Simulated assay, not measured.
Amino acid sequence: MFGISLIVLVLLLSLMVQSRDLKESLAGYETRAEALSQQLEEEQARTEEIKELKEYMQTDEYAEQAAREKLGLVKDNEIIFQEAN
């Protein structure tokens, strides 16, 4: 009877240790899942910004802005003022 009680006690202790380890692992996985969820939201927001920028880059307004900045082009009725050095 004592031997059986000892075996049951050892089994219960081992189950408690395994249960504690599983709870710690679960907490770690939950933390990682939250971090990945946050990262997913950030990437979706970034994807949306890129999509909006892509749509803007296909407009005439963007083409005009790029021509002004990179090529120095101006409209026919514009006057350019330069600072004297």
Rank of each mutant, 00 (worst) to 15 (best):
M1S: 06
G3T: 10
S5D: 15
L6W: 06
L6F: 09
L6R: 14
L6D: 07
I7N: 09
I7A: 13
I7S: 13
I7C: 04
I7R: 15
V8L: 15
L9K: 15
V10K: 15
V10G: 10
L11P: 00
L13Q: 13
S14P: 00
S14H: 05
L15Q: 14
L15I: 05
M16W: 14
M16Q: 12
M16E: 09
Q18T: 12
S19D: 10
R20T: 02
R20V: 08
D21S: 14
D21P: 00
L22C: 05
L22D: 09
E24N: 06
E24W: 10
S25H: 11
S25D: 10
L26R: 01
L26V: 03
A27E: 10
G28R: 01
G28W: 02
G28Y: 05
Y29A: 11
Y29H: 15
E30A: 11
E30H: 13
E30G: 02
T31I: 08
T31Y: 12
T31N: 09
R32V: 14
R32H: 08
A33P: 00
E34G: 01
E34V: 10
A35F: 05
S37P: 00
S37C: 02
L40P: 02
E42G: 04
E43K: 06
E43G: 07
E43C: 04
E43W: 04
R46G: 02
R46W: 01
E48Y: 09
E49A: 09
E49T: 06
I50C: 04
K51A: 07
K51P: 00
K51S: 08
E52I: 11
L53I: 02
L53N: 00
L53T: 08
L53S: 02
E55F: 02
E55A: 09
E55L: 11
Y56C: 01
Q58G: 07
Q58T: 07
Q58W: 01
Q58M: 07
T59E: 01
T59V: 04
D60N: 11
A63G: 07
A63Q: 10
A63M: 12
A63I: 08
E64F: 03
E64A: 11
E64P: 00
Q65C: 06
A66H: 15
A67K: 02
R68G: 01
R68V: 03
E69P: 00
K70L: 14
K70T: 09
L71Q: 09
G72N: 11
G72K: 03
G72L: 11
L73F: 07
L73Y: 10
V74N: 05
K75N: 02
D76N: 04
D76R: 10
N77W: 04
N77Q: 08
N77A: 06
E78N: 07
I80D: 03
F81P: 00
F81E: 00
Q82D: 02
Q82M: 05
E83C: 03
E83H: 03
A84P: 03
A84D: 15
A84W: 12
A84S: 08
N85Y: 05
N85A: 13
N85K: 15
N85W: 08
